[in-house]
């Protein structure tokens, strides 16, 4: 069994998506203590922004272009950030003020998720209609894209490698390092940490906690939007694409410990690699044993759910709670 290069590249993109989503989900959880079930659908909205960019910038005519990324990344960040902010301001904050329990708020996020998927379905119908009615022959070819489009055909390559395989990890590293610097080196970032740790004390010092929380939700949504741009390069565009991902995203956050953005990103990455390689090698092993071709792509969540069970049994507080100094010393990687 040798390492499949294409599998590795695909995994890099997929794991980066999970890393970004698990990190941003952890941010909303730290701020509001609510597991946000709409988070993966935020990414799906980001994915639809790519289709809109392909359409409006005429990339469907010109073929692969960096314009897909130049335009989609900021657009997705802003649009999805705004959706997340509205979810917080219109639904979660008023409900929390009324004293609704965390369980109640969690159910509310499920409701929002269903509404968002409904809106994506309406948008998909709307886009199909526009593409079908268009006099532009090339645009009419996009008619199936809103419900089952592969947008990877519009992304450029770098030395023969699809850009998402390189851009995904790069965006994850830049987001993680950038967020770390923002939280530790800027006044507002420090205020964010302060408001998350002790909102009442932060308020007494003149920090506008509501503003801090609102911006946190916007950033978390924005990061999910960016993840959606990479996601659509590896997955078929569909209004319910987020539903297929939410278990893996939660698994990443839980493995990370739900309390640290860095470990959330690491958890997402690990789950991405575990799912991809787990499915691939299990297929090979079962194929060798049965002598038939085995396809386990639909069972990838078994690996992420398994990771949740193992992590809760071994280290319920996640990777963040482990004594890494001691672990590295035992492995002989640190004196």
């Amino acid at each position: 069994m040798v390492l499949n290069v294409q599998l590795f590249l695909d995994t890099m993109a997929y794991a980066s998506v999970l890393g970004l989503l698990s990190m941003s989900l952890t941010l909303t959880y730290i701020v509001s203590r609510v597991p946000n079930f709409a988070h993966a659908t935020f990414a799906a909205i980001g994915s639809y922004m790519v289709l809109i960019v392909v359409w409006l910038l005429g990339i469907y005519k010109t073929g692969p272009s960096w314009g897909v990324y130049y335009a989609s990344l900021p657009l997705s960040f802003i649009v999805v950030g705004a959706v997340a902010l509205l979810q917080y301001l219109i639904v979660l904050r008023p409900l929390a003020k009324k004293g609704i329990s965390i369980d109640g708020l969690m159910i509310a996020t499920l409701g929002i998720d269903i509404i968002l998927v409904g809106l994506l379905n309406i948008s998909a119908d709307f886009l199909e209609e526009i593409f079908q009615q268009s006099p532009d022959k090339d645009l009419r070819k996009l008619v199936t894209y809103p419900r089952s489009g592969y947008l990877s055909s519009y992304e450029p390559t770098i030395m023969g490698v699809t850009a998402s395989s390189i851009l995904g990890p790069l965006l994850l590293v830049v987001s993680t390092v950038g967020f770390y610097l923002f939280l530790t080196r800027t006044k507002f970032g420090t205020a964010m940490r302060a408001a998350i740790e002790n909102p009442q004390l932060a308020e007494t010092l003149g920090i506008n906690v509501n503003l801090v929380y609102s911006i946190s939700w916007f950033i978390a949504g924005g990061l999910a939007g960016i993840a959606g741009v990479i996601m659509v390069m590896t997955t078929k565009l569909n209004p319910t694409m987020g539903w297929l991902l939410i278990v893996s995203v939660f698994a990443g956050s839980i493995v990370g410990g739900l309390g640290s953005l860095f470990w959330g990103a690491v958890g997402g990455l690990l789950i991405g690699f575990l799912e991809q390689f787990g499915v691939y090698y299990t297929q090979i092993i079962l194929g060798a044993l049965t002598g038939e071709t085995v396809s386990l792509g639909n069972y990838r969540q078994v690996f992420s759910l398994g990771a949740i069970v193992v992590m809760l049994l071994v280290a319920p507080q996640g990777l963040a709670s482990l004594n890494w100094g001691k672990i590295l010393s035992r492995l002989g990687l640190r004196r």
Binding site: K187, T190, A191, R193, A194, E197, N198, L201, A202, L205, G206, I207
Partner: peptide, 15 residues
């Protein structure tokens, strides 16, 4: 703020 340094606590007080 227990998780912040003394310097960061003072900066937050001067926010």
């Amino acid at each position: 703020f227990a998780q912040l340094t003394v310097a960061e606590n003072l900066k937050m007080a001067a926010y």
